[in-house]
C-alpha cells in the first residue's frame, strides 16, 4: 500500500501540469463566454455545456499524456514489483480526481452564472438539476470507458513494437475497429437485448419537451464488465508481453 501511495504521488507530480493547464482552459472559456454573450438569456451555458461534454476525453487524454511520459523511460516505470493493474490504477485514479475537480469547477461557474438568470429556468429546475447530475456521472463513465481503450492500445503497442514493425499501426487500428464493429453488431442483436434489457432506469424529464430516455441496469452492468475485462487484459499484456 505504501508502494502504491508513493506511485500515486509520483504520478500526480508527473502530470500536474496537465491538470493546471486544464483548469486555466476552463477559466479562459468562462471569460470568453462572458465576453461574447450579453443579456438575460441562457446562451452562456452552451459553451459551458460543450466543455462539460468534452470532458469525456479528459481521462483518455490524461492517460495518453501520462503513459507517453513514462514511455520515454519505460524501464523506470515497469521495473517495479507492483502489478500492472496497481500501476495503472494509480494513473486512472489521478486522472479521475482531476476530471472530477475540473467538472466541479465548471459546474460552480455554471452555478454562478445561474444566480442572476434563475427565473429563466425556474419551471424546469428539478429536471435541470437531475440532468446536471446525470450528465456529470455519464461523462465520467464514458471517459473511463474510452480511457480503458487508450490503455489497451498503449499496452498492445508496447507488446508489439519490436515484433511486427510497420504493420504495428495496422494491427492496432484493427484492434480498435474490429471489436467496435463486432460490438456494434452485437449491440443491435436480440441476444444483447435479452442480456441487457432488464432493470429499467428510464430517465424522464417531464418539463423538457423530449421523450423519456430508455436505460437499463443490465446495460450498465454489461459495459462495466467489458471495461473491467479490457482493463485486466491490458494489465496482463503489460505484465507479460510489454517490452521496453
Amino acid at each position: 500500500m505504501a508502494a502504491w501511495a508513493a506511485s500515486f504521488k509520483k504520478d500526480f507530480r508527473l502530470t500536474r501540469s496537465f491538470f493546471f493547464v486544464g483548469l486555466v482552459m476552463n477559466l479562459m472559456i468562462l471569460s470568453l463566454t462572458l465576453f461574447i454573450t450579453h443579456g438575460d438569456n441562457l446562451y452562456p451555458f452552451i459553451p459551458l455545456l460543450a466543455v462539460v461534454a468534452l470532458h469525456v476525453f479528459y481521462l483518455p487524454l490524461f492517460l495518453f499524456t501520462s503513459l507517453r511520459t513514462e514511455a520515454g523511460h519505460l524501464h523506470l516505470w515497469l521495473h517495479n514489483p507492483q502489478s500492472a493493474a496497481a500501476l495503472l490504477l494509480s494513473k486512472i485514479l489521478n486522472g479521475l480526481i482531476m476530471t472530477i475537480i475540473s467538472l466541479i469547477v465548471l459546474y460552480a461557474m455554471a452555478g454562478l452564472l445561474l444566480i442572476s438568470r434563475f427565473h429563466l429556468i425556474e419551471p424546469h429546475w428539478t429536471d435541470t438539476w437531475m440532468a446536471g447530475w446525470l450528465i456529470f456521472v455519464h461523462v465520467i463513465l464514458i471517459s473511463v470507458g474510452i480511457g480503458v481503450w487508450v490503455i489497451l492500445l498503449w499496452s498492445l503497442y508496447h507488446a508489439l513494437k519490436y515484433r511486427i514493425g510497420r504493420w504495428n499501426w495496422l494491427v492496432i487500428l484493427a484492434a480498435v475497429i474490429l471489436p467496435s464493429w463486432i460490438g456494434s453488431l452485437f449491440d443491435s442483436s436480440s441476444l444483447y437485448k435479452m442480456l441487457t434489457q432488464w432493470g429499467s432506469l428510464e430517465m424522464n424529464f417531464p418539463t423538457f419537451s423530449i421523450d423519456p430516455i430508455p436505460a437499463y441496469a443490465g446495460e450498465y452492468l454489461y459495459h462495466f464488465i467489458i471495461t473491467v475485462g479490457l482493463f485486466y487484459l491490458s494489465a496482463w499484456i503489460m505484465d507479460r508481453k510489454a517490452e521496453v
Partner: peptide, 30 residues
Amino acid sequence: AHRRISKHVSYLSDRDSFYPFFTVREAIAY
C-alpha cells in the same frame, strides 16, 4: 523472467533512469 521479476533483480539502465522532478533524496525515498 517477466517484468515483476524485479523483486529478485535490480536493474540499472544505460539510459537516464529518473523522474527528473525528484531531488536525490526523493529519488532514494521513492
